[in-house]
């Protein structure tokens, strides 16, 4: 079953008189429980593509279907609902609310989907336990390490049981050891049936996925299965 289908998507930014083609004619399908890495040089359109897939941005041209629903035709509120229920974002810079503790950060998407207090707290706590942060539930972001912050962000992405996790360079701000721990977590998430798209600059990070899409100047340069996939093990 495919979750995402995009056909001939392009995105053009106008900067002054010049046009920047961030994406050109990109077509893709992403199936359920796939684990996809997106690679490419800086400025090749990876983040633009992720924002598009995450319904944060709209394409200049082309067609986008999310679970067989036409995203291009959706209203602002419908897009917000899709982002809330179907998509879990993980950012390079974590993007947690600095004044709120871990629990409240994870609760936030559930507040926006109208889930009541007790259930909300339960689910947020469980999500934090799942990412190994049961000890840090009441800590604020500035009381957590980078890796722990990213775990909170991952818990926040997972707490709504989304159809897909979109992670734009989730290890970009972490040292390689911490990055590896996060990748172990992503692997577990994938193994429990989730669909993941992850942007990275590192070949060894991309090897954790089962498919690598390479972008170049806004084109899909290559789209291949990973033959020598690296399955991390916990030691």
């Amino acid at each position: 079953m495919n979750i995402i289908t995009i056909e001939n998507i392009s995105k053009v930014y106008k900067v002054g008189d010049t046009e920047v083609h961030a994406l050109r004619d990109v077509s893709l399908t992403i199936n359920k429980n796939e684990y996809v890495a997106i690679m490419g040089p800086s400025g090749s359109g990876k983040s633009t593509l992720m924002n598009m897939l995450g319904c944060l941005d709209t394409p200049s041209n082309g067609r986008y279907e999310f679970k067989n629903k036409n995203v291009s035709a959706m209203t602002d509120n419908e897009l917000a609902a899709i982002r809330n229920r179907e998509i879990g974002f993980v950012f390079q810079t974590f993007n947690l609310l600095s004044r709120s503790n871990a629990l409240h950060n994870v609760e936030l998407p559930l507040i926006y989907s109208g889930i009541s207090g007790a259930e909300r707290k339960d689910r947020a706590r469980k999500a934090l336990v799942d990412v190994g942060l049961e000890e840090r539930i009441h800590h604020k972001p500035n009381e957590l390490s980078g890796g722990q912050r990213q775990r909170v962000a991952i818990a926040r992405a997972l707490v709504t049981n989304p159809s897909i996790i979109l992670a734009d360079e989730p290890t970009g701000n972490l040292d390689s050891k911490t990055g590896e721990e996060i990748m172990i977590l992503f692997n577990q998430i994938h193994q429990t049936g989730n669909t993941i798209i992850l942007v990275t600059h590192e070949e060894y990070i991309a090897k954790h996925a089962d498919r690598i899409i390479r972008l170049k100047d806004g084109y899909v340069h290559s789209d291949e299965k990973v033959l020598d996939r690296y399955i991390p093990t916990i030691n």
Binding site: D76, A80, R83, N95, L97, R156
Partner: peptide, 16 residues
């Protein structure tokens, strides 16, 4: 501004 972006990314509507 960033916080608003984050809130929107996780499902806050304009109304919210």
């Amino acid at each position: 501004t960033r916080e608003i972006g984050v809130r929107k990314a996780i499902g806050a509507t304009r109304k919210t």
